[in-house]
Design a protein around this nucleic acid. Sequence first.
RNA 1: GCCCCGAUGGUGUAGUGGCCUAUCAUGCAGCCCUGUCGAGGCUGCGACCCGGGUUCAAAUCCCGGUCGGGGCGCCA
Length: 485
Amino acid sequence: MKRSSTVDNSDPFRPNMRDSKEWRPTSYRSHTIGQVIELGNSLVGTEVTICGYAETVRGRGAICFLMLRDGTGKIQAFLKKDNMDESLFDSIQSASRESTIRVSGIVAQKRPPKVKEGAPTPPPEYEVNVSSGEILAQASTPLPVGVIDDVQVGLDIRLDNRHLDLRRDHVNAMFQLRSRVLQYGREHLISEGFQEINSPKIIAAAAEGGTNLFPMKYFDTDAYLSQSPQLYKQLAILGGLERVFEIGPAFRAEKHDTYRHLNEFISFDIEGAWMDDEDVMGVQERMIFHIWSEVKKNDQHLIDAVNEYRISQEKEAVVVEVPTLPFPRIPYCDAIEIVKEGGGEIEWGDDIESHHCDLIAAKFPGFHFIPRWPMSMKPFYIHHKEEEEGASGGQLSRGFDLNYGRDEMTSGGAREHRVDILEQNLRNMGLDPEEFSFYTDGFRYGAPPHAGWGLGVARLLMVLTGAGNVREVVLFPRDRSRVTP
RNA sequence: GCCCCGAUGGUGUAGUGGCCUAUCAUGCAGCCCUGUCGAGGCUGCGACCCGGGUUCAAAUCCCGGUCGGGGCGCCA
């Protein structure tokens, strides 16, 4: 992982939004703005061509300051009427904010700003003394939502104008973090021998029962959008792929409307042969440890961009605290006791609801696993051992959840590999094994014991970025009332 | 599916029956300023969600609708 460690992130003009050192020139620009910032002094005196959005255009008369921003950073372009074509100068000077502009000129060290007496001298900054340029596309006015305006915009309006919302530093940073989280997660799983697969999203039958599926027409037959890759990743394991993962969409036609639910979401799934629930909990905690460690090591500038906004909103800054391994395991039976001790009304066999999770989170504020749920509360494909029973005699399962605070991140478990028990589980849950023959047939010819989990990517990002709503960390969220943009 | 709440310029807000030809900020338009950097100064523009009702009088009260917010259930 390459990363410049010399960049001063405290400087607002050097947000270092992306590591752009290796980007090649394109037809439109010789350098990214991030490169001009990072290379700084070594570029002084050389001509560069940069492109970006006009964040501000200041000054009237014979000089003009154009703050240009691209996806890698921001830099000031300095325009002087004497140094360039007069009509071009006039048109850039009167360009609307967020117009895209290309400028060419010599890199120079900026004149230092006036500082208060006794204040430290800021580090040197660079600018481009423009000699030529071009307005690539003029932005309409007024902007439907401000990019740098000092007003709070509601989430709904922001999502209607996501293309502009994304131009805001902290929003952009959150999506860069999302990409990093997926990258580090992949890296880790590949290092443990997992291979990436893609399962079908158009399916014929109810995959697991339970949640509602979106129906669709597949030519002349009825089909559904997949609610989970669960059964297909198991089939991949039965086929000898040993360790697989998939990062893909899942669709649920539930009419929920909360900060943590969407009707389309990205599920980060794994499945591994010859593994049980403990084994895959280990994979998960190591993967989260790796993600957090790498973000802390490489991406503090992105966290800083998020925090700069949070502080302006008088919210607490987020801190990337790498969790210690192993994560606490709080078996379901113990969790019930904790809820009871905390004054919650709950009995063995009840689901642990959000307000119950608050009581557990008071004792275990970070990531924690809740293994060994009652079999009756888990899907048919979850494995159980007959001899494992709860305090009141109910059958336990090898299913687990991973929670952070009050929120569930993951659901997983050891899978049932014994076909006769699998079919009995289906019947116990009121499902017809015949309808699942595409799945159960996979178990008839020798099946390895296996285990896996599914992780909600946006929920994990909520923890990392402090976002209070999954919609913040999903580009174009799909919820009960939103299918556009 | 259940419960609670809300809707005022492009954006975010103040306004709980007459003081509203509606507040403030931001924005936008224009002018002034030859190195700004949260630029500054001046002038102007722009709004009461829709439909019905109560009242001498409705942004304000009532009913319906639409859209949105919060909580719950369910889940990842």
